[in-house]
């Protein structure tokens, strides 16, 4: 066989693989979008061919008028924003301190965090309820936020610390010679230079609460303090089957995520690969 034929066969094979994978990826996405606009209530009403059973926006109206969707959205937004800000502040401050200072208990603290980051905090779920009950944090958004921030700390501090370690010390020394205090050096030298890693950290800690289920499930009880994941889940439990409402609500969360990820895919690839090479 000549080279050309081999190359043609190769290209055809690759094209087939791509087509199959693309269909497998898109099939559920298209069906999800279709379900959000199809009349009816449950999965059983959904057509085999997407968009072939009429078109309606009633599920979105239902979502906004008959359910607490907006409130869930607001709660999740509050939790995500607070978690993101808290994680940013404490992780960057902690990373700076660990990278640039020597102090008592530095080694045990660093090692302790390294070990803790392997254990997901919800493994201690038996304790979470009792602990928050004891400090009055049960069924509150701040209780959830504190757990998220604490759970983020070990990994994030290490991540930022290894980045800050790579920032030349001559930068902060120059600032210090000019009379800047530690706090100023941190705020005006380290934070701006460490912006790439802090952006990564902000994005990860902001997006995680939108998808998390287990911690809010343990901590939040009352209907007005649910998050999006809990609310969406409640549409499709054994007792309820509001599949189309779920599809509409899910679509509204997924769209901003998809736009964001596709728009930032270049830097996403770079930061993922950067994380792999570093540390």
């Amino acid at each position: 066989m000549s080279d050309v034929v081999v190359r043609r066969i190769n290209t055809a094979a690759v094209a087939i693989i791509f087509t199959v994978v693309a269909i497998a990826v898109l099939w559920p996405v298209v069906h999800l979008v279709s379900a959000a606009f199809t009349p009816g209530r449950s999965m059983a009403n959904m057509p085999v061919i997407p968009f072939s059973n009429g078109f309606t926006t009633e599920h979105f109206e239902y979502l906004f008028t008959q359910t607490d969707y907006l409130r869930w959205f607001g709660n999740t937004l509050i939790v995500a924003t607070a978690t993101c800000l808290g994680t940013l502040l404490f992780a960057s401050l902690g990373a700076y301190v660990f990278s640039r200072f020597r102090f008592t208990f530095k080694r045990p603290l660093l090692m302790g965090m390294l070990i803790l980051q392997v254990f997901p905090s919800f493994v201690g779920m038996v304790a979470i309820y009792v602990l928050l009950y004891r400090i009055g944090g049960l069924d509150t958004l701040w209780g959830l936020v504190l757990f998220y921030i604490a759970g983020n700390m070990p990994f994030m501090i290490w991540l930022v610390k290894s980045y800050v370690d790579g920032i030349p010390r001559s930068l902060d020394e120059a600032a210090r010679i000019d009379g800047a205090s530690n706090l100023r050096t941190y705020a005006q030298i380290i934070v701006p230079v460490a912006r790439p890693i802090l952006t990564f950290l902000a994005v990860t800690s902001f997006t995680a609460p939108w998808m998390d289920f287990i911690l809010p499930k343990l901590i939040l009880r009352s209907p007005e303090r649910q998050t999006l994941a809990l609310g969406l889940f409640s549409f499709v439990t054994d007792k309820n089957n509001f599949f189309t409402t779920f599809a509409a609500g899910g679509l509204l969360v997924a769209v901003p995520f998809v736009i964001f990820f596709i728009a930032t895919q270049k830097s996403l690839i770079a930061s993922l690969a950067g994380g792999a090479v570093k540390e």
Binding site: V21, A22, V25, L26, P28, V29, H31, L32, W210, M211, F213, L228, A229, L232, F233, V236, F246, A247, G250, L251, V253, A254, F257, V258, F260, F261, I262, Q265
Partner: peptide, 16 residues
Amino acid sequence: IFILPYAIPSVVSLLY
């Protein structure tokens, strides 16, 4: 296209 499953929150895609 291939990024989609990563971008869609898993609570949405898996419940689907």
